[in-house]
């Protein structure tokens, strides 16, 4: 097998298939004297079907790491393998294919297309994938029902609350039945209750559809849902914990909130 992350137990690695693997990943912004490192050689492994939380303070390199594994940004050095395929080896068209069908993205600021209705937003990735308009419309409505806003399908983002927009974004991310769902601070702009609802939807998708969910967050409620948590600090992975090992800690944090 491939090189193991030092924080992964050999038993777990052997028993489960890997979906995202990073090898000595580096990202540097700027050059020469003024160069700053966002990532300083990260090795990590994410397993198929798990719910991974990426935690860390701002500026820790968490977002950069997140963008790398989502093939949204190119590393300065090192490799990202998604299902054993080196992302750097893919052509622009193959990258578009990957982003369109295999990875779903959810952003902190929802990033819906402003001039499209909820349904049209959900249909965009299907249009890109060449799905027929009828099928796209039907599947789009199903997904909107799934996230609980089927009745608002013809509203534009500007007419919806943050929570509703994030639900549309989730529906959109699921439209081409992705293998991986990447969420960048999905609850950061939402109030407590709405955030909890969004997390519940994510958990449901992970459990029921077997989609690998990778979630960068500050939201400690996520610790209750996830399978594993990755702590990022100063451009390195500090440690990776199994949820069952930190159960007591989480309980205490929950109590504080």
């Amino acid at each position: 097998m491939h090189a193991q992350s030092p924080t992964t137990t050999p038993a777990a690695a052997a028993s489960r298939p890997v979906i995202v693997r990073c090898l000595r990943l580096e990202k540097r912004y700027g050059t020469g004297e003024s160069a700053t490192y966002a990532l300083r050689g990260v090795d990590s492994t994410i397993f198929r079907g798990e719910f991974m939380a990426i935690l860390g303070p701002s500026g820790s390199g968490k977002s950069t790491y997140f963008n790398m594994i989502g093939a949204l940004d190119s590393p300065t050095a090192g490799r990202v393998l998604i299902d054993e395929v080196d992302v750097a080896q893919l052509s622009a068209s193959e990258l578009a294919f990957l982003r369109c069908r295999k990875i779903g993205y959810i952003f902190q600021s929802y990033n819906l297309i402003r001039y499209m209705t909820a349904l049209e937003n959900v249909m965009v990735p299907m249009t890109f994938a060449g799905v027929s308009p009828e099928t796209a419309r039907r599947r789009g409505m199903e997904l909107l029902e799934l996230v609980g806003i089927g009745h608002r399908w013809q509203h534009r983002p500007i007419e919806m609350s943050g929570g509703q927009q994030q639900r549309v974004a989730i529906a959109r991310s699921l439209s081409n039945k992705p293998m991986i769902l990447l969420c960048d601070e999905p609850t950061a702009n939402l109030d407590f209750k709405t955030g909890a609802e969004i997390l519940e939807i994510l958990r449901q998708i992970n459990r029921e559809r077997g989609v690998t969910v990778i979630c960068a967050t500050h939201d400690h409620r996520l610790l209750d849902i996830c399978d594993r948590m990755m702590w990022v600090r100063d451009g390195r992975i500090d440690r990776v914990d199994e949820r069952k090992d930190v159960k007591i800690t989480v309980g205490r944090m929950g109590g504080q909130e």
Partner: peptide, 29 residues
Amino acid sequence: MKDIVAREQVRLSAWKCLRLSLTGMSFRL
């Protein structure tokens, strides 16, 4: 077992592009 096979992305017709840009324009009038 391999679930992710990277292939070429579908190309959209010019007509679809035109319709999408018109939608965008009418919104951002």
